[in-house]
């Protein structure tokens, strides 16, 4: 019965008729015979691949199946549909926290995880391995003549002053579809009064909404967008090299810092390999070339933050507030009202 059930889930998980949508899927065979580690992740294949290669260099007996899905789809797979994966990696800390809180994750403790700073783990179930900032990505050419805004108030000012430059040329995540976008937007709403005014102003200027950072960055680079608001610096930085014409700007009123986290779902089949991967990710800082290659800033001690305005998002039950269906509903309603003023 149980086997049948798992088989059924497997069919669900990997058949095109999946209830949850996946964006990409890639398999990495092991060099030696060994076990299979299946990962469901929000990180694009290109971003994560170097990590997989390095990991397999060290653990040649572990084959990896890497499935990419949006954070809400990852949540749906693990929370609602009990899909079987050995590791869930997501940039949506709130959803990962909810998974751990609601009892969908397995506990894991090792030497490596106990070396992580306190704030980088929650209940020995959620493990942060990167800390990524939300930044403003601006098109160099557009801002040639304009002052570069250093905080949200300046930005609002600028938008009000030059509506003709910015009309239709602002990009941000569509928080209805992007988990990361929703996380950043809710944190913004908590951190500053300016958030709603900014959204309002952006709405009036026909802001374009994106599901993902890739397209948004491309549009900034091409000059189609003057700037994109609240983009993960990890993505931007990894693109900076081969994309001329974009600059990242950190706001100095506050910068949200998101932790990319890993969890072991209850449906894990290869617990050991999942633990090995978590250990490897916890020690990401030990591989500087890998950090460079992926653009994923590893978890470091908090003291390294240069200023007060850097606000790391805290793991914990507070993150579940904006997941409350009623709260989410009213937040999205306000947001849509502000951003879509047609």
């Amino acid at each position: 019965m149980r086997i049948a059930c798992i088989a059924f889930i497997l069919i669900l998980a990997f058949s095109p008729a999946d209830a949850f949508e996946i964006e990409a899927k890639r398999s990495y065979a092991s060099v030696e015979d060994g076990s299979m580690l299946s990962i469901i992740s929000t990180a694009d294949v290109e971003v994560f691949e170097p990590i997989i290669f390095e990991f397999q260099k060290r653990h040649p007996d572990i084959a990896i199946e890497y499935v990419v899905a949006s954070s809400s789809e990852v949540m749906r797979a693990l929370h609602d549909e009990n899909a079987s994966y050995d590791l869930g990696i997501s940039s949506a800390m709130d959803l990962q926290t909810k998974l751990a809180n609601d009892g969908f994750t397995r506990r894991y403790v090792s030497d490596a995880t106990s070396l992580l700073p306190d704030w980088a783990t929650w209940r020995d179930r959620v493990f942060a391995f990167t800390q990524e900032r939300a930044v403003l990505v601006i098109s160099e050419s557009t801002f040639e003549e304009l002052p570069i805004p250093s905080n949200r108030e300046d930005l609002i000012e600028l938008l009000r002053e030059y509506p003709e430059i910015f009309d239709g040329r602002i990009g941000t995540y569509d928080v209805r579809t992007s988990g990361t976008g929703y996380l950043f937007a809710t944190q913004d709403s908590r951190n500053t009064e300016s958030f709603w005014r900014l959204t309002e102003v952006m709405g009036r200027l026909n802001t374009r909404l994106y599901c993902c950072s890739g397209a948004m960055l491309a549009d900034v680079a091409s000059g189609k967008l003057a700037f994109a608001y609240n983009v993960l610096d990890s993505y931007a930085n990894s693109k900076l090299g081969d994309t001329p014409g974009i600059i990242t700007v950190e706001m100095d009123d506050f910068v949200s810092v998101m932790l990319r986290t890993a969890i072991i779902p209850n449906t894990v089949k290869n617990y050991e390999a999942a633990g090995t991967m978590i250990d490897f990710l916890s020690e990401l800082g030990n591989y500087p070339e890998l950090v460079e290659q992926t653009g994923l800033p590893p978890v470091e001690a908090r003291d390294s933050y240069e200023s007060q305005s850097v606000r790391p998002i805290r793991l914990g039950p507070g993150l579940m507030v904006f997941l409350d269906k009623m709260r989410k509903e009213s937040f999205l309603r306000s947001w849509v009202n502000s951003i879509e003023q047609r």
Partner: peptide
């Protein structure tokens, strides 16, 4: 309707 206060859950954490 309910506007779940942020502190209601965060204080427990």
């Amino acid at each position: 309707r309910l506007e779940l206060p942020y502190s209601a859950l965060s204080m427990l954490g």
